[in-house]
Amino acid sequence: MTTSERNVVLHVDDVSKNFGGLHALADIDLEVEQGKTHAIIGPNGAGKSTLLNVIIGRLAPTSGAVVFDGQVLTGKKPHQINQLGVARVFQTPEIFPELTVLQNVMVPAFARRDGAFRVNVLRSVEGEAALRDEAEAILEDVGLAARRVSHAGALSRGDKRRMELAMCLIQHPRLLLLDEPTAGMSRHDTNTTIELLQKIKARGMTKVIIEHDMHVVFSLADKISVLSGGRIIAEGLPDEVRGNVKVQEAYLGGAHRLEAVH
């Protein structure tokens, strides 16, 4: 695909967010292309999670708008945004602790099939064989098939993250937002998650990812935006960002750390 055919699916248009006198985000412009993985990196307090919260409709921007596939997301409710095909993995896993792992993954499947609201009392969950098979296949993908009858609250933090990822994947979202998807995971689990995310990428799912782990970022990202003090200070292909002196000063603290991970 040439640059002239760039297919921008998510457009963050001049978004600012103030909390009282604090400018958490200032004039953010971001374009995410269809099927690409766009990483947002930056030091703590740079505004990464705030940006994600604005995209997903959890926070209303002070000015600017977020457009996804021609639809303005700003002002829409979280469930409406999800129904348009945007799913999110949270920094602290948001799951259903009282339900089993399998049920956790089946619930989002119902949202995808039945929409935002449907009183379905005639059928039984047990009779939904197709959805259950699909949920079990995805649990297999994330490596949680053996835990499917466990209560989700009993999982380790890393397993909860993987389950939350499965909960998003079963919806076949067109845009997946990941807030530090590998935080709290062992190196082995991190690598499994990277492989999984690379597999999804092959299927053409667009992703925005916030991550501290540079190994994860450089394994997955097609494009990187560096956020610092609520502004995008650099943007480009992974190699360009790696070589950017400004970035190294603001965030990476010197070239040696980047060399260390590669």
């Binding site: 999800n82 799951i95 259903f96 602790p97 009282e98 619930v107 379905n120 009392v121 059928r123 919806q171």
Partner: peptide, 26 residues
Amino acid sequence: VFASPFGMMLRGIKSNQMRMSYTGFN
């Protein structure tokens, strides 16, 4: 009601209402 998808959605609301909205449920 208890065995239905509707019942499971109600349990989801009890368990984590925020997750339910970000999962696409009104």
